[in-house]
């Protein structure tokens, strides 16, 4: 089991009222699985993503990544765990504009003082259709290409899980299919566990398993 949550709940205080964003979510994700977490806006899917990714602390319950209770750590240790064990892909790509494709991809390795395995990075970029784009700056790339760079950056550290938050939310339908095909194929090749958080049923079909979230409650299927 790569990720496991136990009775995970998050309550936000909004003035006098309590908002139950997530209620008693107990899920597990196996190594190598591709899981879609589907929910509409306000369903609690972003809250779940933040809790799985060590971005926000739960009101109640636990998150285990590779068996380790991540919220037992202080903020500093949690930040380190996030960098080493979790890969993020966001809707807006979040690439560093002044760095080229190669530099953006190896950035998380550098931040962690890890050695860059250049042939591995080159192979990864090739798998993602970016073989001839190593030296391009993000603003010289299309949206689909930028998202593929972000995917390479998430995969390069070989994290326990890649969390992709609406990864095609900013792309047209043709490019979305292309990006999701590549994300899925690259993850399969590397045995990488991924969770795609989306509102889109079309994106969910790239995954092996679907979890649905509605009003903060999660269910299989």
């Amino acid at each position: 089991m790569i990720v496991k949550t136990k009775n995970l709940s998050k309550i936000y205080q909004s003035g006098e009222t309590e908002v139950h964003a997530l209620t008693d979510a107990s899920i597990s994700i196996e190594r190598g699985e591709a899981v879609a977490i589907i929910g509409s806006s306000g369903s609690g899917k972003s809250t779940l993503l933040h809790l799985l990714g060590g971005i926000d602390r739960p009101t109640k319950g636990k998150v285990f990544i590779e068996g380790e209770d991540i919220y037992k750590h202080n903020d500093e240790a949690l930040a380190l765990l996030r960098r080493r064990r979790i890969g993020f892909v966001f809707q807006m790509y979040n690439l560093m504009p002044q760095l080229n494709v190669y530099e953006n991809v190896v950035l998380p390795l550098g931040l962690d003082g890890r050695i860059v395995d250049k042939p591995r990075v080159v192979a990864l970029l090739e798998n993602l259709g970016l073989a001839d784009k190593h030296k391009s700056l993000p603003n010289q790339l299309s949206g689909g290409q930028q998202q593929r760079v972000a995917i390479a950056r998430a995969l390069v550290t070989q994290p326990a899980i890649v969390l992709a938050d609406e990864p095609t939310g900013n792309l047209d339908s043709k490019t979305s299919v292309e990006v999701l095909n590549l994300l899925r194929a690259s993850a399969s090749k590397l045995g990488q566990t991924i969770a795609i958080i989306t509102h889109d049923e079309k994106a969910a079909q790239f995954c092996d398993r679907i979890l649905r979230i509605e009003d903060g409650h999660i269910r299989e299927g």
């Binding site: 259709g129 292309e178 095909n181 049923e201 079909q205 679907i210 299927g221």
Partner: peptide, 26 residues
């Protein structure tokens, strides 16, 4: 033929599927 993938599309005028079935049918 796209830049990275080539696809063959098979379109029918049959019973169709509800969106929540897209992933399940596989």
């Amino acid at each position: 033929q796209g830049p990275l993938y080539t696809h063959v599309d098979v379109a029918d005028t049959g019973i169709g599927l509800a969106p929540e079935e897209y992933a399940k049918i596989f």
